[in-house]
Design a protein around this nucleic acid. Structure first.
Lengths: 207, 207
DNA sequence: CCAGTTCTGTACTGAGTTGTCAAGAACGAT
DNA sequence: ATCGTTCTTGACAACTCAGTACAGAACTGG
């Protein structure tokens, strides 16, 4: 029996994420968020808790999206596990790994993992951000590690290799691709990096 | 026949770099820089050109330091090229790769490559920063690639492998380590990643 | 010791920022 | 239709920030 919200919460948070992505946390004012989301100042402060709150909620939504998308993209039959790993590495070239709704990022730096970018900028002073970013990492980590194990079961990867170590390394490479991409290197160059990484994965010793 | 400077330019820029590292570009005010460097506003604006200028000069100094340190750390006899590559990867665990003067970084995120961090934060809107960051990358790139070629000459790495591709991949991994470190992962974990990467380098096919 | 030049510190301005508040709008239950 | 509750809008005050200007300090060559 009261006036209903006139905006979609997730839609707003998604727009805020896009803004944070392109101008960074400290580089965006509340007015910028207001303009990007269409919400007035008052609603922003009432619904979330200012900039902090918007960032935290946006990261939370990002996490949810990742928690759904990552397993979906990396799970599947053992036979095609290697292909999925390959596709995952190549997708990193264009940014926005496994939660793609922002297809043509204007600048590659804006395509980097949202959680990683925020963690790097304000993670040192905002432990909540650090925590949320870690959650995102963990979700990706388990998905990749499971995929590695699947590839091992199928005989495409050395069964002696530690799947977790390999997954950590793969994620590190994907994160590094974000950074190198921010330098302005061409997609061709990034693709070459991804292919090199894929080629170096440890194959079984004997066949 | 005029009053001499009471500060050392490089020392000031180094202090500014430390500040930018810990609080980011947009997160530091001119007063912060003033406090960190001990310089008054007036001197800051007279010597450099405000925040922009300080950042650009600081990056420039960082580049110079890198251009000296990187070849020194990675050049040497072919016999020990692999050891140098190994050491380079392990050094990334604790940040501030090849220009170490800030040994105990309070937060690992502050230990990330200065150029990379700035490029990721403001590179999209400040092409000068992007350029300087790219220069830093290039310097590292050639140094690593040369070291890879040395290792190939010594028979420690597959001579068929493309040295440049390998160097790109190694640098990507080091940059990724910065990001993963910013999440708060333990040095032990980062070390494990570095070791995995090193172990996967392509050895010669036949001996 | 003096004059000229450069550096240093501080106060000031205008723009931009954050967070709050109150008045009005929209809706459902009665 | 009306009332109460909740959302929205715009304006507002306090504050911070970047950049400038000016007065004074320090030093050196003569």
């Amino acid at each position: 029996m009261a006036r209903p919200r006139s905006f979609d919460r997730d839609h707003v948070l998604h727009a805020a994420e896009r803004q944070f992505r392109t101008t960074g946390y400290n580089g965006t004012s509340v007015d910028d968020i207001s303009a990007a989301t269409g919400l007035g100042r008052g609603s922003l402060y009432a619904t979330f808790d200012g900039k902090h709150g918007v960032l935290h909620e946006a990261l939370s939504v990002y996490f949810t999206r990742l928690a759904q998308g990552a397993p979906k993209a990396l799970a599947g039959p053992d036979e095609s596990a290697m292909e999925r790993l390959h596709a995952y590495l190549l997708r990193a070239v264009h940014g926005v790994p496994l939660a793609a709704d922002v297809p043509p990022a204007p600048d590659r730096a804006a395509g980097a993992c949202f959680a990683a970018k925020m963690a790097l900028e304000v993670g040192a002073s905002d432990s909540e951000v650090k925590r949320l970013a870690n959650d995102c990492f963990s979700v990706l980590m388990t998905a990749v590690a499971d995929c590695v194990r699947a590839a091992q079961r199928n005989g495409d990867l050395d069964p002696e290799a530690d799947a977790d170590d390999l997954a950590y390394l793969l994620l590190t490479i994907v994160r590094g691709t974000d950074v190198v991409g921010a330098y302005g290197h061409s997609p061709a160059r990034l693709t070459s990096i991804a292919e090199s990484a894929f080629a170096l994965l440890p194959r079984p010793r004997h066949r």
